[in-house]
Write a protein that binds this DNA or RNA. Structure first.
Lengths: 134, 134
DNA sequence: CGGTATCCCTAAGGATACTG
DNA sequence: CAGTATCCTTAGGGATACCG
């Protein structure tokens, strides 16, 4: 279970030092994927249950098909999301979270909760900071 | 404490619906700032205590001065980070977290912990997914 | 030391059109 | 419906140089 143990059986792709601060570390790459602008919101949405592509697209305001597709592919590749094609008429595709994805999504949900709860403070801080000419 | 109450006293800048899924919501903007590629790592680093600009730059591998500067400004504007100029020779600038910043940083730390602990799983998932031609 | 300003280039990302 | 492909525009972000 310890990430540092992954190198034990001589796995060449395992990182020797596991830290998000290390630019070449898998955890850094995963962190960036997961905190990505669209991937993060897709994960939070999927945390509430199975979603179809179009459902996600409508839920995550502002995302384009292209970006959503790319984000979901990255998450699938990282083992956070499963993609299931349902051959029917009309055809559908269902997205779900893996156990790992659920843990990550839960964490992101807590972060989103915190920011939703403190949005007022952020708004006030922005006003107090003054208007930016840029 | 409830974010939805911020509109009660007629605050014109408060959001009526507070959700990270809403593209025009303050919480969404804050969420994007906070989960930004460099801002997130800067927050985690600052969660460990006061840092000078150069310390942060060295800690967050791969960040340029420009990007770090921009990220810190955004966090300062959002009321997450304080910037203190110490007039001395040589002059220094100290960055710290506000109470709100500490809460956010703590949350990000937990997410980073999770991904550092499961980096091995992600690595395996990536191998199993196969090499991408793109 | 701790930035800001400028230049420049790459890549993120939106719109549209087309396919399984 | 759920994408992929193409095109095109914007903006993210690095390098360099310079200021407080």
């Amino acid at each position: 279970m310890n990430a540092h143990e992954t190198a034990e059986r001589g796995d060449p792709t395992a990182d020797l030092v596991t830290s998000v601060f290390a630019s070449a570390c898998t955890s850094r790459a995963a962190f960036e994927d997961v905190t990505g602008k669209w991937a993060s919101l897709a994960l939070i949405a999927l945390g509430e249950g199975t979603h179809r592509f179009g459902e996600l697209r409508r839920r995550v305001e502002g995302v384009s098909e292209k970006m959503l597709s790319q984000a979901l592919q990255a998450l699938e590749r990282d083992g956070m999301v499963t993609r299931t094609v349902v051959t029917a008429i009309p055809p559908r595709v269902e997205y779900d979270l893996t156990p790992l994805g659920k843990r990550v999504a839960g964490q992101l949900r807590l972060l989103a909760d915190l920011l939703e709860a403190t949005a007022g403070d952020v708004g006030k801080a922005r006003e107090a900071f003054g208007q930016r000419t840029t």
